[in-house]
């Protein structure tokens, strides 16, 4: 039970880390430049809409070129000129990210396999297919449903009180997991009704939000970050469930 969970967690965590550096890390670093003020969104509208005042001023020439590329290309262009956001490599920071990503997927795996244990105790068979479904369900509970109220934040975003968000986050994960289990394994109509209510309840109550928008990062950047985070999560959770299901069936 435990060794299968550790193995599945490591496999999913390593894949998540690989995809993180492929899709997400560059956006985090760029977001931090806006967070720290190294770059400012719409800082110099009078000078050819350049998104990178410093680089344009240093080179003299490229301001027009950046503006001509349009907004999205302008970001890439600017970050290359800046020389940090896309290629930044910090060995200690990146190794810690890999380690903690593996750790968090091992944690997910323990929770998932505990669920397998409960299912098996109830006489249900768990194999790779069930594992995959459970993995996708875990993704919905631990990433997708909380993201409906608290979208994954790019550094540079501003959000409501941390404690309140954490409470809502955990409650949403728990209610979503219970709701999905009720839908999947319930036998009676009242179970389905309760399950639907459990899925809806956190969103009826609503996540803690601020009274306005204070983020300093460009919306395109934050949108790309959130979408990619959710995509990477789906892949990693699917791997997690599938591998854990394999191990569970093999140990049977």
């Amino acid at each position: 039970m435990v060794s299968g969970a550790v193995f599945a967690g490591c496999a999913a965590g390593l894949i998540a880390a690989l995809l993180h550096f492929w899709f997400v890390q560059g956006l985090i670093l760029t977001g931090e430049e806006f967070e720290s003020g190294a770059r400012v969104h719409f800082a110099a509208p009078a000078e050819g809409h350049s998104h990178d005042h410093g680089a344009a001023a240093a080179d003299g020439a490229p301001a027009d070129a950046v503006a001509a590329d349009g907004a999205e290309a302008g970001h890439d262009h600017a970050s290359h000129e800046h020389g940090v956001a896309d290629g930044g490599f910090d060995a200690k920071r990146d190794l810690l990210t890999v380690a903690f990503t593996v750790l968090i997927y091992v944690a997910y795996a323990f929770i998932l396999v505990a669920g397998f244990g409960a299912a098996a105790a109830a006489g249900l068979r768990i194999g790779p297919l069930q594992g995959l479904l459970w993995g996708i369900g875990g993704y919905a509970a631990f990433q997708l449903a909380p993201a409906m109220g608290l979208p994954p934040e790019l550094p540079g975003s501003v959000a409501a009180d941390l404690g309140a968000r954490q409470v809502w986050w955990w409650a949403t994960a728990g209610f979503t997991a219970l709701g999905l289990l009720g839908l999947g394994y319930g036998r009676k109509v009242w179970v389905f009704v309760l399950a639907g209510a459990a899925l809806a309840l956190p969103h009826v109550i609503g996540a803690p939000v601020l009274d306005g928008y204070y983020g300093v990062a460009p919306p395109e950047l934050a949108a790309a970050f959130t979408a990619r985070v959710l995509g990477v999560g789906l892949v990693a959770w699917s791997v997690l469930g599938w591998v854990a299901g394999h191990f569970w069936a093999k140990a049977d």
Partner: peptide, 11 residues
């Protein structure tokens, strides 16, 4: 854990 926390959507 900073980058992982952002990238898994934890508050």
């Amino acid at each position: 854990a900073h980058d992982m926390r952002h990238a898994t959507g934890f508050p």
